[in-house]
Amino acid sequence: MTVNTVTKRIAVGFAIAAFGAAGYLVGNAATSTAAPAQAPTPPKIVKGNDVGTNELSFAKCPDGTALIGGGYASDGVQSGPVIGGKSYDAYIKANAPSLSRPNTWAAKIDVPGGTIAAYAVCATG
């Protein structure tokens, strides 16, 4: 698996989710009367199944958690920004929340011999 890809893809999704939550908290701080917040619970990372080309990998958040981001890890793809005249991202056909499965991240690759696994970032608290 390409660890750097996982780190970059998941970190971007989590950073966006965290920024959105922080913006909400800052925007509502003046009107809040709640007790001081406890330290946030770190998100749970869930790995989906490894699948081959043109198959979907799904990573489902456990019950009691909420999907806040996701990403993928792939193998069998050459490193570098361009493969066979296409950018690397042209081979990733899905990397988003699943439209058919709630609370689930989906990933799909279109490279002969390649594999992909979806990762879900799940809020636990």
Rank of each mutant, 00 (worst) to 15 (best):
P62H: 11
I92Y: 06
S98V: 02
G23Q: 13
P112Q: 11
S98H: 04
V26E: 08
D110W: 05
A29F: 13
K44N: 10
K86D: 05
P36K: 14
S79E: 14
V111Q: 10
G70E: 06
P97Y: 08
D63H: 03
T104R: 04
A106N: 04
R101N: 09
G52W: 09
G27F: 04
V51H: 05
A117H: 07
D110F: 02
G69E: 05
G27C: 05
T33P: 00
K86E: 06
A34P: 00
S79C: 06
Y119I: 06
I92M: 12
A123T: 01
P42C: 00
K86L: 14
Q38A: 15
A59G: 00
S87L: 10
V51T: 04
P40M: 08
K93M: 13
G64Y: 08
K108W: 03
V46H: 03
V51K: 04
P62I: 09
D50E: 14
A30N: 11
C122F: 09
P36R: 12
A120P: 04
K93Y: 06
S79H: 13
K60Q: 11
S32A: 15
A30R: 13
V26F: 14
A117Q: 09
V77S: 11
A94W: 04
S100V: 14
I45C: 02
D50T: 13
A35S: 15
A39M: 13
I116Y: 05
Q38L: 15
K86F: 12
G23A: 10
A37Q: 15
D50F: 13
A120V: 01
D50K: 08
A107K: 07
K60C: 00
Y72E: 03
A39C: 07
S100G: 03
P102S: 14
G48F: 05
Y119M: 07
G85M: 08
A30T: 12
Y88S: 15
Q38E: 15
C122R: 03
G23T: 10
